[in-house]
Amino acid sequence: MGYNTVAVLYNDFTDDFRRRGVDLGPRIADAMTRYHDLERDPLARHFHGGMVISQDHASGEQVVLVTKNTGWRVEDAPEVGWHALQQMQRCLERHGYQVIKPQPKRRVKAIELTKVEAEFVSEMSHDKSVENSWQNFDPDFRQKDIARLLRRGWFERHVDEGGYRQYRWTDAGRSALMGHTP
Results as ranks from 00 to 15, higher is better:
169 W>I: 05
175 S>L: 10
88 M>S: 06
77 A>T: 06
157 R>S: 02
109 K>S: 11
27 R>T: 08
138 D>R: 05
63 V>F: 06
9 L>T: 05
171 D>V: 08
33 T>P: 13
51 M>C: 12
145 D>Q: 07
119 E>S: 13
160 D>K: 00
2 G>N: 14
37 D>N: 08
71 G>C: 00
2 G>T: 15
81 G>M: 04
107 R>C: 03
101 K>Q: 15
163 G>Y: 05
23 D>H: 13
2 G>M: 11
146 I>G: 02
91 C>M: 15
42 P>E: 01
16 D>Q: 15
48 H>T: 13
50 G>E: 00
60 G>E: 14
73 R>M: 09
18 R>E: 10
2 G>E: 09
134 W>V: 02
52 V>P: 07
57 H>M: 11
78 P>Y: 00
112 E>V: 08
80 V>H: 00
101 K>I: 15
98 Q>T: 12
67 T>F: 07
52 V>A: 01
136 N>M: 13
86 Q>K: 14
1 M>L: 03
166 Q>P: 00
70 T>S: 06
21 G>V: 02
92 L>W: 07
101 K>G: 12
37 D>F: 04
157 R>A: 04
67 T>K: 09
63 V>S: 08
131 E>D: 06
18 R>A: 08
153 G>N: 02
44 A>P: 14
89 Q>Y: 10
9 L>I: 11
22 V>S: 05
62 Q>K: 13
173 G>D: 00
170 T>K: 04
17 F>K: 05
60 G>Q: 14
51 M>Y: 04
144 K>L: 07
18 R>W: 11
170 T>C: 03
47 F>M: 06
42 P>W: 02
8 V>Y: 10
59 S>K: 06
177 L>T: 02
1 M>I: 01
55 Q>S: 11
169 W>K: 03
131 E>G: 07
120 F>D: 05
142 R>G: 12
40 R>Y: 12
11 N>R: 15
165 R>K: 08
98 Q>V: 13
151 R>C: 02
55 Q>G: 09
41 D>A: 06
11 N>G: 15
25 G>S: 12
166 Q>T: 04
37 D>E: 08
107 R>Q: 12
99 V>G: 01
34 R>M: 07
169 W>N: 03
70 T>M: 02
126 H>W: 09
129 S>V: 10
39 E>N: 11
41 D>S: 09
44 A>I: 07
138 D>T: 03
182 P>G: 04
71 G>S: 00
47 F>D: 03
175 S>C: 05
140 D>M: 06
49 G>M: 01
154 W>A: 00
103 Q>P: 10
84 A>S: 09
16 D>F: 13
82 W>N: 14
161 E>H: 06
4 N>G: 14
75 E>L: 07
94 R>K: 12
94 R>E: 02
97 Y>F: 15
117 E>Q: 14
182 P>I: 00
152 R>S: 08
162 G>N: 07
72 W>Q: 02
85 L>A: 12
32 M>Y: 09
148 R>K: 05
11 N>D: 14
17 F>I: 08
180 H>M: 04
135 Q>S: 02
19 R>I: 15
81 G>N: 11
99 V>H: 01
70 T>A: 01
93 E>M: 04
6 V>C: 12
126 H>Q: 14
171 D>Q: 09
25 G>P: 12
